[in-house]
Simulated scan of single mutants.
Amino acid sequence: MTATPTEHRAKIAEARNVLGEVISRARYAGEPTVLINRGKEAAVIVSYEDYATLRELRSYVAELEAGTAPDEVHKARVLSEALALAKYRATD
């Protein structure tokens, strides 16, 4: 069982002052930093590995959505719903 990584939050100006530390946390510890701009989440600094995984998942969902087999359509819907739920939870 994998523990949920620590998520850091920082205003963009503050993160800029310690950018090396923010990048190191993402890269080596797998700890993302949510960047805040004017009180709202603006972006997230994550490891390249996490970014590549997200891109791969999005590509996979797009391929499944383009498919015509019922199984592919079902898989695409399940993955799309999971991504939508993750996005909803991230903004909650």
Rank of each mutant, 00 (worst) to 15 (best):
residue 54 L to N: 14
residue 16 R to I: 07
residue 48 Y to W: 07
residue 86 A to Y: 04
residue 2 T to M: 14
residue 90 A to C: 05
residue 8 H to Q: 05
residue 45 I to T: 09
residue 47 S to W: 06
residue 54 L to V: 09
residue 18 V to K: 15
residue 80 S to A: 12
residue 15 A to R: 06
residue 71 D to L: 12
residue 45 I to V: 15
residue 9 R to G: 03
residue 34 V to Y: 07
residue 47 S to Q: 10
residue 37 N to Q: 12
residue 38 R to H: 13
residue 23 I to V: 15
residue 72 E to V: 00
residue 37 N to C: 15
residue 28 Y to M: 12
residue 21 E to I: 05
residue 57 L to A: 02
residue 12 I to Q: 13
residue 86 A to C: 01
residue 91 T to E: 14
residue 63 E to C: 06
residue 9 R to Q: 12
residue 11 K to G: 11
residue 57 L to H: 03
residue 12 I to F: 13
residue 21 E to N: 14
residue 88 Y to E: 15
residue 87 K to R: 12
residue 82 A to S: 12
residue 73 V to Y: 00
residue 48 Y to M: 11
residue 28 Y to T: 08
residue 27 R to P: 01
residue 10 A to N: 05
residue 65 E to S: 01
residue 65 E to W: 00
residue 81 E to P: 01
residue 92 D to T: 05
residue 22 V to E: 07
residue 91 T to W: 03
residue 41 E to I: 05
residue 76 A to S: 12
residue 85 L to S: 07
residue 75 K to F: 03
residue 56 E to S: 14
residue 48 Y to A: 15
residue 82 A to P: 02
residue 68 T to S: 07
residue 57 L to S: 04
residue 45 I to G: 02
residue 31 E to G: 03
residue 9 R to E: 12
residue 6 T to A: 09
residue 25 R to P: 01
residue 68 T to F: 00
residue 86 A to E: 08
residue 24 S to E: 14
residue 33 T to V: 05
residue 88 Y to D: 13
residue 3 A to M: 08
residue 25 R to G: 03
residue 24 S to W: 03
residue 9 R to F: 12
residue 57 L to K: 02
residue 57 L to R: 14
residue 32 P to Y: 05
residue 55 R to G: 01
residue 91 T to Q: 11
residue 78 V to H: 07
residue 38 R to M: 11
residue 31 E to N: 03
residue 5 P to I: 12
residue 29 A to G: 00
residue 90 A to Y: 07
residue 61 V to M: 04
residue 59 S to Q: 13
residue 58 R to E: 15
residue 74 H to T: 06
residue 75 K to Q: 13
residue 26 A to R: 09
residue 19 L to E: 04
residue 41 E to S: 10
residue 28 Y to F: 12
residue 7 E to C: 11
residue 91 T to N: 11
residue 13 A to I: 12
residue 70 P to Y: 01
residue 21 E to W: 10
residue 42 A to G: 04
residue 58 R to A: 10
residue 92 D to G: 11
residue 48 Y to G: 14
residue 3 A to Q: 11
residue 71 D to C: 01
